[in-house]
């Protein structure tokens, strides 16, 4: 009896609970994931360190030529790294948004296949 309760009944409960979970705790989960992954990517890119050192010459070249070259090199680096970050962030954001759209999309497909003559294959 207990085994049944823990298996089949739990499974049915799970299925019924899915939409609720998806838009409540599930949303909290995917939001946290978005924040954590973005922060981690930001750190990985080392952007903060590069911005902090914007006016510090690279490779200890403290002469004026070194400073100028470094400044522009750093600028390029920062822009490059920032673009990299933005791309990654955009991907994360797409996943995040997909989370919201996915159930609605499934329902839309369901309605379309059931009530229209549209066939998904061929």
């Amino acid at each position: 009896m207990m085994a049944l309760k823990y298996t089949l009944i739990a499974l049915i409960k799970d299925i019924l609970y899915l939409p609720v979970w998806w838009y409540t705790r599930g949303t909290v989960f995917i939001y946290k994931w978005l924040v954590n992954t973005s922060v981690s990517t930001w750190k990985q890119m080392g952007l903060a360190v590069w911005i902090k050192n914007l006016f510090v010459p690279m490779f200890q070249q403290y002469d004026w030529q070194g400073r100028i070259i470094s400044f522009f090199m750093r600028l390029v680096q920062i822009i490059g790294r920032f673009i990299g970050f933005v791309i990654m962030f955009a991907i994360y954001l797409v996943i995040f948004l997909a989370w919201f759209i996915l159930p609605a999309f499934a329902v839309y497909l369901f309605l379309q296949t059931t009530f229209n003559t549209y066939t998904p294959l061929i």
């Binding site: 899915l18 998806w22 599930g26 159930p103 499934a106 329902v107 497909l109 369901f110 998904p120």
Partner: peptide
């Protein structure tokens, strides 16, 4: 059908995450 596939994947994901 695709809609069912999506729901199945959502279902497995929710279980693993939980």
């Amino acid at each position: 059908p695709l809609w069912l596939l999506i729901i199945i994947i959502m279902f497995v994901m929710s279980r693993l995450v939980r």
